[in-house]
Amino acid sequence: MPMSAPEIESLLREAFPTADITVQGDDGVHMAASIVAEEFAGKNRVAQQRMVYAALKGKMDGPSGELHALALTTKAKE
C-alpha cells in the first residue's frame, strides 16, 4: 500500500513540528523528502536520517515496507 506525499509529510510533521518539510514523488513508492529542522543541529547526516526513519515508524522497506525508496536531504536549521 504505497504512501502519499501528504501522509509522509504528516508523519514527519509529527516528529519535526517546526521544520521546513517538502515531500515529492507521485508513485507512493519512490519518494523524496527534504527536511530542514532544528532537531538536526549538531548531528551528523547518519544521525539526522536515523531520526527521519524513526519518524516514519517502520514504513521504510521492511517486510511490510510500503515505501521502497525515500531519497532524503536533511539539514540543520541555523
Binding site: V46, Q49, Y53, G58, M60, G62, A69
Partner: peptide, 21 residues
C-alpha cells in the same frame, strides 16, 4: 546498523551511510 534501507557502506567496521549520504 539500525538503518532500514539497502545499500549500506561500511569503512573499517563503521557504518558510513546509504545511497543519499
Amino acid at each position: 546498523s539500525d538503518w532500514p534501507t539497502i545499500p549500506q557502506l561500511y569503512v573499517k567496521g563503521e557504518f558510513v551511510g546509504g545511497c543519499d549520504i
